[in-house]
Amino acid sequence: MRAALAAAALPGLAHADALDQLRGFVRDTKFGRADFTQTVTAPDGIKKKTSTGTFEFSRPNRFRFVYQKPYAQTIVGDGQKVWFYDVDLAQVTVRKMGDALGATPAAVLAGQGIEKDFELKAEPDRDGLQWVLATPKQSEGQLQWLRVGFKGTTLAALEIADSFGQRSLLKFNAIASQTPPAPETFKFTVPAGVDVTEP
Rank of each mutant, 00 (worst) to 15 (best):
I175W: 00
F164I: 08
L169H: 03
R126F: 12
T29Y: 02
T29N: 03
V82Y: 02
E159Q: 13
F118Y: 06
V82N: 01
D125C: 04
F188E: 05
E198F: 03
G165A: 10
L89Y: 01
Q144G: 07
F25D: 02
A90W: 00
M97L: 15
A72G: 06
A100V: 14
N61P: 04
T153H: 13
F25K: 03
P183K: 07
P191L: 09
G102I: 03
A14Y: 01
K81N: 07
T29G: 01
L101H: 02
F31H: 08
A106I: 12
T197C: 01
F57I: 06
K96H: 12
Q130C: 04
A134D: 06
W83G: 02
A3V: 13
T154D: 15
E119H: 14
A16V: 04
Q68R: 09
T185W: 13
R62F: 12
S168P: 07
V87E: 10
L101A: 12
K81R: 15
G128P: 07
D162R: 08
V82R: 01
P183H: 09
T104L: 13
D195R: 07
P191Y: 11
A16P: 00
T54D: 04
F150M: 09
L10W: 11
L169W: 01
A157V: 01
T29M: 02
M1P: 11
G102F: 05
E140L: 10
R62A: 11
T135M: 11
V194M: 06
Q68M: 10
P60W: 10
K151Y: 05
A8Y: 09
S168I: 04
D125F: 03
K137W: 09
D99N: 15
L22S: 10
T154N: 15
L109C: 08
G24F: 05
P11Y: 06
K48E: 13
T189Q: 14
P181Q: 09
P43G: 09
P105L: 13
F57V: 04
P180N: 07
L101M: 14
V26S: 10
Q130V: 04
A3R: 15
P105K: 12
A122S: 11
A90C: 02
A192V: 11
K47V: 13
T189W: 10
F84M: 11
V132W: 05
Q112S: 15
K137A: 08
T153F: 08
A122M: 05
S139Q: 15
A110C: 13
G77A: 15
A8K: 14
H15A: 12
R126T: 13
M97G: 06
G32K: 00
A182V: 08
Q142T: 15
S177I: 00
P199Y: 08
R33W: 05
P11I: 03
G77V: 07
E123I: 11
D195I: 03
A4I: 14
L13G: 01
G79P: 07
L146S: 08
L10R: 10
G79M: 12
D86A: 08
F84S: 07
